[in-house]
């Protein structure tokens, strides 16, 4: 089985990678590409057929890196397709189909909802609490946060909401999105209570490690999705001067 990404540009479609399985490395590589800002997007080819979403829409993603990562997910499937390992594909499908029909405002509200029960606190604006309810969030903080989230596009927001629901924390998610925390650190902080219990009572591989790896995979997929969907890459070459 072989997959390739198609780039939709200038109305024409060019293959990004050509070598099918069974051929050796002598197959000519795809021609060098000029990185013009993409107007269309990237598709995935699955055994010469276009990948579709569950709602039969054409699977189109905004970034080349994301398309390649999704293609790699499909490529790594063996005798059975394990959807529970294909987090990036799932996120793209959710963004394309939007099965729950939510708009940006609803996505932001769903993400900010976790702020009230956030167990990780820092900064003066939020304050800290020793009771189980957590401190009340100043309205100003909430407003600033909502307007900050509104600056992301719908795809990135979908990813942010996904990460928030995984980590159960708005602040950890922002730390991850703004590259202050690595995935491993964010996951560790979101599992503080569990880690404490593990230290005290011991680690159970089929429960604790299993959940840890799943959480890490989901969080990493969400963070990568946000980054790849909210950036635009341009490469500028230096002009040679005599």
């Amino acid at each position: 089985m072989w997959r390739s990404c198609l780039r939709l540009r200038d109305g024409g479609r060019r293959l990004l990678n050509l070598p099918p399985a069974g051929l050796t490395a002598s197959v000519p590589r795809a021609p060098a590409r000029a990185y013009a800002p993409p107007t269309g997007g990237f598709e995935i080819n699955l055994d010469h057929r276009k990948l579709k979403t569950p709602q039969a829409k054409l699977f189109t993603v905004p970034s080349e890196a994301l398309a390649i990562a999704v293609a790699t997910e499909w490529d790594s499937q063996q005798d059975t397709i394990k959807f529970y390992t294909m987090h990036l594909t799932t996120l793209c499908n959710t963004s394309l189909d939007n099965p729950t029909q939510r708009n940006k405002d609803q996505l932001i509200r769903a993400a900010v909802k976790f702020l009230d029960t956030d167990t990780i606190w820092y900064g003066i604006e939020i304050g800290s609490s020793t009771s189980i309810m957590g401190p009340s969030i100043p309205a100003k903080t909430r407003e600033v946060l909502i307007s900050h989230l509104a600056s992301y596009n719908a795809w990135a927001l979908q990813g942010i909401e996904f990460v928030v629901t995984q980590l159960k924390s708005m602040l950890l998610t922002l730390g991850l999105v703004d590259r202050h925390l690595m995935v491993e650190q964010a996951v560790l902080l979101s599992r503080l209570e569990e880690e404490y219990q593990i230290q005290k009572w011991g680690n159970v591989e089929w429960a604790h490690d299993y959940e840890l790896q799943e959480l890490r995979a989901r969080t990493a997929a969400g963070a990568l999705f946000v980054h790849l969907c909210s950036e635009s890459t341009t490469v500028k070459h230096k002009l040679l001067q005599d």
Binding site: Y210, Q213, R216, A217
Partner: peptide, 25 residues
């Protein structure tokens, strides 16, 4: 580099998750 590290974490976690899944579930 941050993206690459995130992707590495994704691939590694999926591999270990699948291994645990096959072992125990």
């Amino acid at each position: 580099h941050f993206q690459a590290a995130t992707y590495l974490c994704l691939l590694r976690s999926i591999r270990e998750h699948v291994a645990l899944h096959q072992e125990f579930h």
